[in-house]
Design a protein around this nucleic acid. Sequence first.
DNA 1: GTCATCATGTAAGCCGTTACATGATTGC
DNA 2: GCAATCATGTAACGGCTTACATGATGAC
Lengths: 214, 214
Amino acid sequence: MIVDVIDLAVLGLLDDSPLHGYEIRRRLRAQLGLVANVSFGSLYPALARLERAGDVEVIDDDALVAPLPSTGSLSGERAASRSKRLVGGRARRSRKVYALTEQGRATFATLLAEPSTSDDSRTFGLRWSFARHLAPNARLALLERRRAQLVQHLDDAGPAPELDVYAKSVVEHAAHGLASDIAWLDELIAAERAQLSEDTDRPAGTPAPESAPA
Amino acid sequence: MIVDVIDLAVLGLLDDSPLHGYEIRRRLRAQLGLVANVSFGSLYPALARLERAGDVEVIDDDALVAPLPSTGSLSGERAASRSKRLVGGRARRSRKVYALTEQGRATFATLLAEPSTSDDSRTFGLRWSFARHLAPNARLALLERRRAQLVQHLDDAGPAPELDVYAKSVVEHAAHGLASDIAWLDELIAAERAQLSEDTDRPAGTPAPESAPA
DNA sequence: GTCATCATGTAAGCCGTTACATGATTGC
DNA sequence: GCAATCATGTAACGGCTTACATGATGAC
């Protein structure tokens, strides 16, 4: 099972609340624009694929504005709810609102924790964005895996051979960026460790502090 | 004419000395591993394409060992380790050594200066690596274009909405990275400006200082 | 009545990777 | 003889973007 960045992003957002495609994209741009970005051309097919896989399902549009009435099966009404429908007196174009299924929740958890997959910064950034869904020890593991990858990456480069000022400045800046990423991870690791030992010291039921220091 | 990162890399390396594909890749990994990387699967087709386009040409393998302008870096060790090679020219396995044509030199200059194209960090890193091939004012223009792009990018993000600690840390770190890139560019710009005015003040022929302060 | 925005979707195409196929040379 | 490295190439495939097609709705 190969991690699709897009799957992670979609499942992660839907884990908070049901959303339609357009809104998913809007949120990704607004919230994580610097980290993740997707075009409709990949988002909609991804949603369709996730639906086929049973990780998400289309729910009634009304779910967004009002809680679902306790009618058992939506499937018959789904077609009716597509196309024009009155919501609070305003007509709305058809939107397909997606929600996570139980299976989808499991898939998300798996993808998020998956230790085996791609090491690029986008995937890590996305994972860490959803880190609140991870158990404390899984968070630490994620950070340490990433750290090891970056250190490895830095080692692979080795000492640069003779380069002119310009090329050297690029290489050095890249190395500096990597070092800065590692330092960041070190901070996060320290913060996680601190919180972990706090949680261990404090008996269950005691209110937790607001989290790591800014 | 769309800038292919790979074209820029290949032409740039060949501008120093003729090389064969395997060596081009080795150098890219060794010198710019943190910045650029190419697989054989894209490199060889790219070389073929550049040859068809008339930007590079295959030269005689002997040119690498025989005295030729600007082949210095390879000759020593390589000539020794290849001692088996017969001067007659048919003992060694085929290596296709590519050299820039006049047209290729022009193409390289164009690609390097091209103001219109992609704004990703890899392209910029590659361009700046070859910045010694640019005129001082073109160097400044390149830096300033890149700076404007990054500032724009930072503005696009806008103030982040409510995010939990984890997502926030990712976004902030990304923003920090961007800011750090901008600061780096500012240093480079300052250094270029300083050198530019020095060159202007000093009459031609006066030796130039070693460049910007570290 | 038409323009901007919301909303969904498909198709073409680029760019690059991995995997495969092939073969020479060197060292053990 | 065999493995590792050097060396070149092809083919399949994947992911993502752009451009296109469609349509509703609200504002002016």
